[in-house]
Design a protein around this nucleic acid. Structure first.
Ligand SMILES: [Mn+2]
Ligand SMILES: [Mn+2]
Ligand SMILES: [Zn+2]
Ligand SMILES: [Zn+2]
Lengths: 138, 138
DNA sequence: GTAATTATTTGTAATGATTACACATTTGTA
DNA sequence: TACAAATGTGTAATCATTACAAATAATTAC
């Protein structure tokens, strides 16, 4: 998707493009943070003064349905969205609030006795604590 | 804690006992589900007609601070409480809503390169999908 | 034991992210 | 251009959780 048109990317994914959707996708793609819908709104409403919060909520929902986005529930009352939909772990720093990715073993998925006969659709792994920067600030 | 007094148990844990606190602890201990604060309230307000929702919220917060309880954030807008504070995984069935425990590997905690220098305070693993009962209902 | 102090409980009012909804705008099509 | 469908917008509702202040119960001081 590097350097390409986000309009085109939306089309390719079977989503009717719009300025709002393209800008939201661009933001998610370029800034590789794990923003909330509100974070996205706050960042974009300068560029698109008419942007509505509802549009952001609708769009992240749409993207999620198209598997472009993965919602992360780490804190209650805060859904974050990750454009990396692969299986990986998340670390949320309780001090700065940043979220960090880490590699998480895929194993353990199959060999769990208690889940015999279960249909697993989603896997989530998250840790909490202090990131190295915040740890160093004593 | 089997067959003992929950008042005593609270004292032992350094918590001033009360009827409300003891009943909440008893419920959490005996029913080994992962209830929300509201679930606890719904179950107990028959026994204790004067019980306030706020008391339940205050109590689960108190218990959490004393590490008697572990809050689980799996869905937004729903905090569940687990009296088993050990590290284990949770499976939430998207059909019946029940939560199942499973053993989760402790390993992977240390050897994660991306988290070098990070202070890990909490580890959470949860899956979603269909439990075996709900899977069998086709 | 009674009064004063402190802790606990209760009910109601606020909070705040998300959702519902109705209307406005834009887009696609004939 | 004209109409229909899709998309976007703003406001109002939702609902679990939290804040708060008054009521009640427990503990301590005398
Ligand atoms: Mn991620
Ligand atoms: Mn559990
Ligand atoms: Zn940090
Ligand atoms: Zn089920």
């Amino acid at each position: 998707m590097l350097g390409t048109d986000f309009f085109m990317e939306l089309s390719n994914r079977g989503i009717q493009p719009s300025i709002q959707r393209a800008k939201i996708l661009e933001f998610l793609w370029k800034e590789r943070i794990h923003p909330t819908a509100d974070d996205i709104f706050d960042h974009l409403h300068h560029e698109i003064p008419t942007l509505s919060r509802t549009t952001v909520y609708n769009t992240v929902k749409l993207f999620t349905e198209h598997n472009i986005l993965q919602p992360l529930v780490i804190e209650d009352k805060e859904i974050r969205y990750d454009i990396d939909t692969s299986l990986h772990g998340h670390f949320k720093c309780e001090s700065c609030g940043n979220i960090f990715d880490f590699k998480a073993d895929n194993e353990g998925s199959a060999g769990i006795r208690e889940l015999e006969g279960f249909q697993i659709r989603e896997r989530h792994i998250y840790f909490k604590g202090l990131c190295s920067s915040c740890s160093n600030l004593k």
